[in-house]
Amino acid sequence: MKKKLRIRYCPQCHWLLRATYVAQELLTTFEKELGGICLEPSDTAGEFAILCEDDVLFDRKTNGGFEEIKIIKQLVRDYVCPEKPLGHSDK
């Protein structure tokens, strides 16, 4: 069964566009490996997190800020399909 991701974002910070961009990039890269991505507005101010089931793959607050999309792709790859090469994003 394919894994599904959730992106929780702060609507007060206007991070919906960032969440949709990240979702688009992940769905494009992992179109065969992912079962979908759900965008969830958060009640927690400043939250931006990517989760799979109950596992947090990325959290802006814990990480100290946003990461480049290639780092996020590596984190998702390592969790969902560690054998998948990411081409230039692996460098």
Rank of each mutant, 00 (worst) to 15 (best):
T29S: 10
F30V: 07
F30G: 08
F30Y: 04
E31N: 10
E31S: 15
E31W: 06
K32W: 00
K32N: 07
K32M: 07
K32A: 12
E33F: 07
E33K: 12
E33I: 08
L34R: 05
L34N: 08
G36I: 00
G36H: 08
G36M: 04
G36P: 02
G36K: 00
G36N: 03
C38E: 14
C38P: 00
C38L: 13
C38K: 14
L39H: 04
E40W: 00
P41F: 03
P41Q: 08
S42L: 00
S42N: 02
S42H: 04
D43A: 11
T44G: 00
T44A: 05
A45C: 09
A45Y: 14
A45W: 01
A45G: 03
G46M: 08
G46W: 05
G46I: 07
G46P: 09
E47L: 12
F48H: 02
F48C: 09
A49E: 02
A49R: 15
A49H: 02
A49M: 11
A49Q: 12
I50W: 04
I50M: 02
I50E: 03
L51H: 07
L51D: 04
L51S: 03
C52W: 03
C52E: 13
C52M: 12
E53D: 14
E53G: 11
E53F: 10
D55S: 09
D55K: 15
V56D: 01
V56T: 12
V56Y: 00
L57I: 09
L57V: 02
L57W: 06
L57Y: 06
F58H: 02
F58V: 00
F58W: 07
D59F: 06
D59Y: 03
D59W: 02
R60E: 04
R60C: 11
K61P: 03
N63P: 03
N63V: 01
N63H: 12
N63I: 00
N63A: 15
G64N: 10
G64W: 01
G64Q: 09
G64S: 01
G65A: 01
G65K: 08
G65V: 01
F66E: 04
F66H: 11
E67P: 01
E67T: 03
E68P: 09
K70W: 14
I71C: 03
I71N: 11
I71G: 00
I71T: 12
I72E: 05
I72L: 15
K73Q: 15
K73E: 07
K73P: 05
Q74V: 06
Q74C: 13
L75S: 06
L75M: 11
L75Q: 09
R77T: 12
D78F: 10
Y79N: 04
Y79K: 13
V80K: 15
V80S: 11
V80M: 12
V80D: 13
V80Q: 10
C81H: 10
C81F: 11
C81E: 07
C81L: 08
P82F: 04
P82M: 07
E83Q: 15
K84E: 02
K84F: 10
K84I: 02
K84G: 02
P85S: 08
G87C: 09
G87P: 13
G87E: 08
G87N: 10
H88K: 14
S89E: 09
S89P: 06
S89K: 07
S89D: 14
